[in-house]
Design a protein around this nucleic acid. Structure first.
Ligand SMILES: [Mn+2]
Ligand SMILES: [Mn+2]
Ligand SMILES: [Zn+2]
Ligand SMILES: [Zn+2]
Lengths: 142, 142
DNA sequence: TATTATTTGCAACTCAGTTGCATCATGAAG
DNA sequence: CTTCATGATGCAACTGAGTTGCAAATAATA
């Protein structure tokens, strides 16, 4: 939750022409500080006693998603995990990997995924996402 | 819900060493008859007055998934859609396409998706799934 | 500062999916 | 064919992430 995080959050809101409200700045800073996708609850927890109302966090995340600043990264146990969109291209996000042994999901930021064609049988394909499943490095060794 | 559907359902249960119960046969037949992934509610609706209890359908789907006969195809509006696994390889399922205009999700059974490498930074990748987003043929024409 | 459109907080709600438990049916053994 | 243990089913009650309505607060603008 650094000074630069605050500045970045401000300019992200500016860029998206969203009003600079306290909850939006806080949620953005929390997302900027996160190293993995986080849930509403994790955001609230991280913000401690200055956290906005639960409903406000949801509505903020929704607004940020709509503006393209944030993505719903993946769903785990009926709970959405959110992340900043700034490492994804318009057409393709990095893949998310879930370990079948420990259940942990990880962003594979540096993995190259081949892009599919932008059209198929009349379907116009604008974005592609990939989920991977297998064993993480910890669970992989026998 | 043909005779052959009944036979297929029976052999699928056999193959998976699952007990041949009425609910399992019904759910499997419903899935065999479906042309798209379906929800618990759609299965119940399709089976009409001989439908098993809602909880049983969920538990049946869970058992069939665990046995590898069925997949959770995609989630829409916090609701899982299920499909038979028999058109998927061990490593890769066909992609699912969601139209951002009408919200409909479709299986692209005939679409080729390049396979990723089976290992990356210590992660062992056993299965890959892809979700596509864009405009369906209907919504695509202006 | 005054005005207005947005945003926020709170309480109550929704509903797909889950859980506990008593009853029932399947498949194996005799 | 009958017995029996294991596993499956049905029902009622529950869970909890996410949603809705609305009054109060606040940001942008003049
Ligand atoms: Mn990610
Ligand atoms: Mn499918
Ligand atoms: Zn693991
Ligand atoms: Zn469409």
């Amino acid at each position: 939750m650094s000074r630069s995080g605050e500045q970045t959050a401000l300019s992200l809101l500016e860029e998206a022409s969203l009003r600079r409200t306290k909850p939006r700045l806080l949620v953005l800073q929390s997302l900027l500080a996160a190293s993995q996708p986080v849930t509403q609850e994790q955001i609230a927890e991280q913000l401690g006693d200055k956290t906005p109302n639960k409903v406000t966090i949801y509505r903020t995340l929704e607004a940020l998603c709509e503006a393209g600043l944030v993505h719903k990264a993946f769903l785990q146990d009926r709970t959405w995990h959110f992340e900043l969109a700034h490492n994804c291209s318009e057409h393709q996000c990095h893949p998310h990997f879930t370990c079948t042994a420990c259940g942990q999901t990880t962003c594979l930021m540096d993995m190259q995924v081949p892009a599919v064609k932008s059209s198929h049988n009349g379907y116009t394909i604008q974005r592609q996402r990939m989920q991977l499943e297998g064993l993480c490095p910890q669970c992989g060794q026998r």
